[in-house]
């Protein structure tokens, strides 16, 4: 049973089609990536899922049914347009937002205390929100997303405005939430950030879904016949089973395009037989960015 089920949703703003027949399912306990470049329709899709917008056509179910007020308490949402009430103290702001998620006062106080401690915001709790730095506000917002321990966490561009240390912290928190069995939908254009995190993903471009499935499967489908090799020796110009050798940089990195029918194991054997000292031997798996660019350029060629 899927936590979110999106069936062929479409949304137009005037003449502009923001989302065009997008479908995907999010299953319990996974980190699901909703990926795509800026303006692809990610945020609009999320807003439709959250019942902020109504779709022009298509259907969305959350927790096996339409969105209700009660279900909103089971969802934590970190919107792309970040914001907290600027004119009130941080602690009070978080408590108010937690109470709107149906949280009991005592429990929310305890949890907010713990989170403020963990996010290093203890000093700032009595300060007005507008006095906090952007990064601090972002962390505070994350607290309000997680404090009611939602079953479904939806975060839109979680890494903007965060430095590397805080980025890592957010990643750790997301992994921790997944290990607790929470379902996470992560919406971002920074595809390299989610490669280590996502279990499954959908890739949206210009409102259309262009890729959908588990990360491993997608990678496998796009893995070509290229092997990355690093060595301090000079490679011979002709290696049996290799059709092309490309020197990627001066540090001894090479990309070897392998002949059809030759497995990486066979190539490794050949290299060892040639007595080449290998520092690294790796089957090149494309990054999401590369896959995305490949898809998009292929489509454009098809359109022309």
């Amino acid at each position: 049973m899927s936590t979110i089920s999106v069936k062929s949703i479409t949304k137009n703003f005037g003449t502009q089609c923001a989302v065009d027949h997008v479908s995907f399912d999010v299953y319990p306990g996974e980190i699901f990536g909703l990926l795509g470049p800026n303006g692809a329709g990610k945020t609009t899709s999320i807003r439709i899922v959250l019942d902020i917008f109504e779709p022009d056509s298509g259907e969305v179910t959350v927790f096996d049914g339409p969105m209700t007020e009660a279900k909103k308490n089971r969802i934590g949402y970190l919107p792309e347009e970040r914001g907290l009430y600027q004119d009130i103290p941080l602690e009070y702001c978080l408590q108010y937002l937690a109470s709107l998620k149906g949280m009991d006062k005592e429990v929310s106080h305890k949890r907010i205390d713990a989170y403020l401690e963990r996010f290093d915001l203890n000093q700032a709790r009595k300060k007005k929100v507008k006095e906090l730095s952007k990064g601090m506000q972002q962390k505070a917002q994350l607290i309000s997303t997680l404090v009611h321990e939602p079953e479904l966490i939806i975060i839109d561009e979680p890494f903007t405005a965060l430095d590397p240390v805080n980025t890592q912290m957010v990643k750790d928190i997301l992994k921790e939430q997944r290990s607790k069995g929470k379902t996470i939908v992560m919406c971002t254009h920074q595809m390299h950030q989610v490669e280590q995190l996502c279990d499954r993903l959908v890739l949206i471009n210009q409102g259309k879904s262009v890729l959908y499935g588990s990360l491993n499967e997608i990678r496998k489908n796009f893995t070509g016949n290229v092997v990355e090799v690093r060595t301090h020796e000079t490679l011979p110009e002709n290696i049996p089973g290799v059709t092309a050798i490309r020197h990627t940089n001066q540090n001894g990195d090479y990309m070897l395009t392998v002949e059809e029918g030759i497995t990486p194991q066979k190539l490794l054997k050949t290299l060892i037989n040639l007595d080449i000292q290998l520092e690294q031997f790796e089957i090149a798996s494309p990054t999401l960015d590369e896959i995305f660019i490949k898809i998009v350029t292929k489509r454009d060629e098809g359109n022309e």
């Binding site: 807003r47 959250l50 902020i52 007020e69 909103k72 308490n73 969802i75 949402y77 919107p79 347009e81 970040r82 914001g83 907290l84 009430y85 600027q86 937002l97 709107l100 998620k101 309000s144």
Partner: peptide, 20 residues
């Protein structure tokens, strides 16, 4: 207007209904 200027709407809208 403040909800708009502070950009808190989406959080509020996903916590309660517009009529509330």
């Amino acid at each position: 207007v403040e909800e708009k200027e502070n950009r808190t709407m989406e959080i509020i809208l996903t916590s309660s209904s517009p009529n509330q």
